[in-house]
């Protein structure tokens, strides 16, 4: 029993060490071998452009659902006019970035780990080495960069459409006053809230890129191995997003207190 636990612990520590080394190599790769247009353009199309519809759909529904739920609670207390800031803060600093990241981890991260896993089991990673390319610099660094830069951008789209969805639901369908909705929102929402949301999105983008590429590189032989790598990539990204969101909320709150109080 204790021996098993010790073995599991050692395995987790070894895995963490491998992931840290892999991540460091991916970041170093950005400076050693700057990703070129030939690598970046397809990634921007795949990760950025093709994710826009799903991100917009997610954002719109998140905004509308939050509006419905917040309205239901505030209506009981007769405080519907406070809905605007609560809905919009939830969207821009918490639920918008987290849900956009989870959707992107499924769509983009899953595709990346499956692609790299397939490259691993079909010896394409070995072929890269024989042709003088470092697979981490060549494949992972550009994907990490694309996720790191594009996930925040997609989060901004998601937030914008979420704010719009929340507004339409609250004002057009639930009957909250247009004036009170925006007046209260302007009073309570600060640029800091938007900054926190986008700041989190950079972290989410980075971890999605690194975790999903790492899991792809670690894929075992065969279709089953690639399938398992893809599932592991999503689960690990999901946990990293939720756990990271918690720690970043603490971090940003402390930073706010340090800077403004």
């Amino acid at each position: 029993m204790i021996a098993d636990m010790t073995e599991s612990l050692i395995s987790v520590i070894e895995g963490a060490g491998r992931f840290t080394r892999f991540s460091a190599a991916a970041v170093k790769g950005l400076f050693v071998e700057r990703p070129g247009r030939r690598q970046m353009v397809p990634l921007v199309m795949e990760i950025g452009l093709r994710s826009v519809p799903v991100v917009l759909a997610t954002g719109a529904f998140v905004g509308m659902v939050i509006a419905v739920q917040i309205f239901a609670q505030l209506h009981k207390m007769g405080s519907e006019s406070a809905a605007g800031p609560i809905i919009n803060i939830s969207i821009v600093s918490e639920l918008g970035p987290v849900l956009a990241a989870i959707i992107l981890a499924g769509r983009v991260g899953g595709a990346m780990s499956a692609e790299l896993g397939t490259m691993k089991v079909t010896e394409q990673l070995d072929a890269l080495r024989t042709l003088g390319a470092d697979p981490v610099s060549y494949l992972v660094s550009p994907r990490f960069l694309a996720c790191f830069l594009l996930v925040p951008l997609l989060t901004i789209y998601s937030d914008a459409i979420g704010v719009l969805g929340g507004y339409l639901m609250s004002v057009r369908f639930l009957g909250i006053s247009d004036y009170h909705y925006w007046h209260q929102t302007r009073q309570f929402i600060q640029r800091w809230d938007v900054f926190v949301g986008v700041g989190k999105a950079f972290y989410f983008g980075g971890v999605i890129g690194l975790i999903c590429c790492y899991k792809g590189f670690m894929a075992e032989k065969g279709a089953e191995g690639v399938g398992r790598a893809t599932t592991d990539a999503f689960v690990a990204s999901f946990i990293a997003i939720l756990a990271g969101n918690f720690f970043m909320a603490l971090f940003f709150n402390n930073l706010y207190d340090y800077l403004y109080t």
């Binding site: 397809p42 079909t122 394409q124 890269l128 080495r129 024989t130």
Partner: peptide, 20 residues
Amino acid sequence: LSRVRSRFGMVFQGAALFDS
């Protein structure tokens, strides 16, 4: 090692062509 590998060529069992 990368410099040494440039003096080699390798043909893989499944060809290992880059799909993309």
